[in-house]
Design a protein around this nucleic acid. Structure first.
Length: 718
DNA sequence: CTGGGGTCCT
DNA sequence: AGGACCC
């Protein structure tokens, strides 16, 4: 359908300013000549003249603006939003006083002692506001097959090609309202004929235009359906969306309009708060000239630190430039990058796929489609940073807090009534739009927690740079899921990532314990306890290289060296339906040797484990399941059991109801043994936090006796 | 002295 | 599981 449309448009373009109109000439000769040889089907626009209409929208100093909605006294003030020791962002007033985004708090306060600090470590409010903006925009362009992609909390990409062309078609068919040189762009379906905006048929763009001489030279453009006039029309639509975001939500935005994402994003940052910029090149040369103004190739989305560092290194080797791998090394300009890195060079350095992409990016070529952000994310994670967190009890306590925090988020974002509270509610967005553009801002309904007498601000005193500094902190009231709300998605996997000292992150994942979904029968505390237990198991599991689970990593993680600097817990693999039970048997089924294995498929382990103890024991006895809690296991017996290997045994692993994570010294074998349970499958005793994993992959589980000896080397002896 | 998140690719 | 990218 794209081809049909673009044919009619390019025939319209052919009459007036064909050579300068630059549709074909926007492509490099290479790209024009090349026909797709790949077997995978390319996006419709690949290899075709640029035809898409992309808007990049950027919420201005988002965290600051969002905080100002909660606390208007911040308006007009130099404000910095801090996360731990860093300024996530700061207000333009603060920037005028020399404060830089991403500077340390200490540095910012040195430059601007009057800086007002806001705590931005809890993202709840920002996340909600961000989703609101996304839904608003999607409510407008969605009905026209428009696509909206969220990038982080404060950026959107919007593909309005279909929407604009639908309008142009309607206009060609005389279906639009016109009045004294103006046309009405009806933005909602026919049920809402008043929603939309008037624009001037003179074809003047809204906002800034780049390259600077671009529009002036083509001022004789007729407002016909040329590609250029479609881009110009898009600036009106962009303003409309920005006006909506401002009037309905109260946030100002910057925007860029171009024929692809990278260029739209690049120009969106050229004029920054509350302005928009159109990129309107006449030729491919215009694009390259524009990019060559960019002194730092990192300004192009896709050129990150690792890539540029590698490029600079390669440059130093061939051109005797003394650019080491420093952070302080001078930026690599786009023009230098383009001249110094022919395609063959880039593919050598980065492989065919990435190399080709980077080569195109240096010339402004970008095929990346606007990928509609799905209703539910692919993963939900929380994290916190520490200064050398160590000790079993300390770590376990943090794990409990983080687990509870993750559960709170999962409940908030994955539960709802069938329609989905996070869902677009297309009708609602249209209603909002139907209201006048200059209407009052929407009420922001964050249920605020009011600890202070003076209002909704919690003052937190924090010692920063030797002074006590007040950090304003806005908190949301706790709430439980409503009665009617049910899980819309079920994360099947949980992943624990940690950073040890200042090293790199490492991560392990395992099955999500399914009882975290039982919000009716278990308190959040109980479910958090369960999840934290599983996480402690992951912490102790160590890497695959640890084979039998010597517990080296775990010992160090809990007790040794620098301690933990970061803990991140992620819920991923979000399923639509709740699985029946924990997949305990996969390992054994794959093992193949289970012909004689006795089947107990009729027993739902999860259900069994949740029964009251007396009933549970009764049922277990009936099915021959060992629910025995064991005081201690003799070391020698364990060793021999371990040698035989769990996979040869016949029974499924099963543990008794899990006790809380014991607050105890893990280096004491006695403690471990006393709280261990014996695997009914292979007979190995495991500490509580290892049982979950052991049940899935017995060979990775760390037998208590080994754990004891491993930690004993650092701890209080065997 | 370096946040608290996300996505995709290998 | 890790590494790159994005904000």
């Amino acid at each position: 359908m794209t081809t049909k449309r673009s044919r009619s448009l390019s025939s319209a373009a052919a009459d007036s300013n064909a050579p300068q109109n630059g549709i074909a000439s926007l492509l490099s000769p290479k790209a024009q000549g090349k026909r797709r040889v790949t077997t995978s089907s390319p996006p419709p626009h690949v290899g075709a003249p640029p035809n898409r209409l992309i808007i990049a929208i950027d919420l201005d100093s988002f965290y600051v603006s969002a905080s100002r909605l909660l606390d208007p006294s911040l308006i007009g003030q130099p404000v910095g939003v801090k996360q731990k020791g860093l300024l996530a962002t700061c207000s333009y007033e603060a920037r005028a006083l020399g404060v830089r985004k991403l500077s340390t708090v200490r540095d910012a306060l040195r430059r601007c002692p009057a800086l007002i600090l806001v705590d931005g470590e809890d993202l709840t409010w920002y996340r909600r506001l961000s989703a609101k903006v996304w839904r608003l925009v999607r409510g407008v362009v969605g009905p026209w097959d428009g696509k909206v992609e969220k990038l982080g909390l404060d950026e959107l990409f919007v593909d309005v090609t279909e929407m604009v062309d639908a309008h142009i078609r309607g206009r060609e068919e005389g279906k639009t309202r016109e009045d004294a040189g103006r046309v009405f762009f009806q933005v909602a379906p026919d049920s809402e004929p008043e929603a939309g905006f008037w624009y001037d048929t003179l074809g003047k763009p809204i906002g800034h235009v780049l390259p600077l001489d671009s529009h002036a030279s083509s001022s004789e453009d007729t407002p016909s359906s040329t590609y250029r006039s479609r881009l110009i029309l898009t600036t009106h639509l962009a303003l409309h969306l920005r006006n909506l975001i401002h009037s309905q939500i109260g946030l100002t935005t910057s925007a860029g309009i171009a024929h692809n994402k990278v260029l739209a994003k690049l120009v969106s940052s050229r004029h920054k708060p509350a302005k928009q910029t159109l990129f309107l090149p006449r030729s491919a040369e215009d694009v390259v000239r524009f990019l060559d103004d960019e002194a730092d190739v990192r300004a192009i989305m896709g050129f990150g630190g690792a890539i540029v560092s590698k490029m600079r290194e390669s440059l130093g080797a061939t051109s005797s430039e003394a650019a080491a791998n420093d952070d302080a090394s001078p930026p690599l300009s786009v023009s230098l990058a383009r001249k110094a890195f022919p395609l063959a060079h880039l593919t050598t350095l980065f492989g065919p796929r990435l190399g080709i992409r980077l080569h195109g990016l240096l010339r402004g070529l970008d095929d990346e489609e606007v990928a509609p952000t799905p209703l539910y994310p692919l993963q939900i994670s929380i994290e916190d940073t520490y200064r050398g967190l160590k000790g079993q009890e300390v770590v376990a306590e943090q794990m409990r807090l983080l687990a509870a925090s993750l559960l709170r988020r999962l409940e908030g974002e994955l539960m709802g009534s069938g329609a989905g509270m996070l869902s677009s509610e297309p009708g609602k967005a249209e209603q909002m739009e139907k209201q006048d553009d200059r209407g009052k801002w929407q009420r922001h309904d964050m249920p605020l927690f009011l600890p202070g007498e003076q209002g909704n601000i919690t003052g937190k005193e924090a010692p920063i740079s030797d002074q006590k500094v007040i950090v304003r902190c806005y908190r949301e009231r706790e709430s439980d899921p409503s009665e009617s709300s049910t899980w819309q998605r079920y994360p099947l996997t949980v992943r624990l990532s940690i950073r040890h000292g200042w090293g790199k992150r490492t991560s392990r994942s395992t099955a999500m314990p399914l009882d975290i979904f039982d919000v009716r029968t278990l308190s959040r505390r109980e479910r958090a306890e369960r999840l934290a237990g599983v996480l402690m198991g992951l912490l102790l599991r160590g890497g695959p290289g640890q084979g039998q689970g010597q517990g080296q990593i775990s010992g160090e993680a809990l007790l040794g060296g620098e301690g933990l600097n970061l803990i991140n817990i992620a819920a991923l693999n979000l399923a639509t339906r709740r699985p029946a039970a924990q997949p305990l048997r996969t390992f054994f089924d794959a093992g193949g040797g289970g012909a004689a294995r006795q089947k107990r498929d009729s027993v739902d382990m999860e259900t069994l484990l949740q029964l009251p103890e007396d009933i549970r024991r009764e049922v277990a006895a009936q099915y021959g399941i060992v629910l025995e809690e064991q005081e201690a296991v003799v070391g020698a017996e364990q060793e021999s059991r371990l040698d035989t290997g769990c996979e040869e045994d016949e029974d499924d692993a099963l543990w008794d109801d899990l006790p809380p994570i014991p607050a105890m010294d893990p280096s004491s074998p006695a403690n471990i043994a006393s709280s261990s349970l014996v695997c009914s499958h292979c007979g190995v005793a495991e500490a509580p936090w290892l049982q979950h994993d052991h049940a899935r992959w017995p060979i990775y589980g760390v037998p208590a006796v080994l754990l004891g000896s491993a930690t004993a080397s650092e701890g209080s002896g065997a």
